[in-house]
Design a protein around this nucleic acid. Sequence first.
DNA 1: GGCTCTGGTCGATCGCGTCCACGGCCTACA
DNA 2: TGTAGGCCGTGGACGCGATCGACCAGAGCC
Lengths: 152, 152
Amino acid sequence: MDAIDQSLLELLRGNARLSYAELARQVGLSAPAVHERVGKLEASGVVRGYRAEVSPEAIGLGVTALIGIVEDSGGDTDDVLEAFRAMPEIESCYFMAGVESFLLKARVGTIAELEQLIVRLNRTPGVASTRTAVALSTKWENRPQPVPAPPA
Amino acid sequence: MDAIDQSLLELLRGNARLSYAELARQVGLSAPAVHERVGKLEASGVVRGYRAEVSPEAIGLGVTALIGIVEDSGGDTDDVLEAFRAMPEIESCYFMAGVESFLLKARVGTIAELEQLIVRLNRTPGVASTRTAVALSTKWENRPQPVPAPPA
DNA sequence: GGCTCTGGTCGATCGCGTCCACGGCCTACA
DNA sequence: TGTAGGCCGTGGACGCGATCGACCAGAGCC
């Protein structure tokens, strides 16, 4: 993971569909060399995948909510997790320090759907209570920050 | 935005580096047809871009925190936003309903850096108070949910 | 000093991206 | 109902890119 790898990551975070030839020009190597480097970054898990970023509103998911979950003292955390995983509306799931064990980011089409989701969450075994905050607007999201000095 | 467009979005959300030829095979059209459809999806803003997803730990950003911000009654929201925007650690910024006007997702390398970030946030004009919760682990993040029925 | 491993370039081949001309279907309208 | 026009697709052509193999330079190690 040297400076060239960092440049490649930076470039691919900006536009994942850049050709190897274009990447090669940008970093001053040959295309096969870039191909090999990127392959190693993928194989080592540094690059997890390449995703098209779709505007949520455009596909009818205009409502974003952040939901804190307090767990039942008797519940099994893994079961709760499984239940969350089965709900496709839950885009992100963090296990947190604090009273609320989980923080979920959910995306639905309407407030009515959000209501149904919250009801389902509250009914989930192991969930003691939920606290929902809805996002009025998303100022930005998943902004890539510059790759800092490598850990190695 | 018909069923084929939805398939294309689904495919590209799974792997943004698929070739047009491959996409064409998957949806049963010719490559130029797919090229044109994807071009229109990009032009209309449905597809915002293509991003490589990089493992945060691999680039030395092992600490994720969610930070709620209570605004000063006298502060200017736009100024606060500008200040947040200038902090690269803040990956996402939502404007929320509720006492806390903003919810930030921040990513830093160490707890010490998180401390410095919180100090900077509290010093920011317009910020009355902050509430930080750190993520112990990320169960999943930005999981693409199936494209539902189109709004049209 | 020579061996080997790593990581690069170069060249060749094959497939892909992309442009263009053409054609079929659907609709609007007389 | 016949017809014109627009939309959206296909097929062909051509140049570029992906990718493989062969080869080479430098570092580290015996």
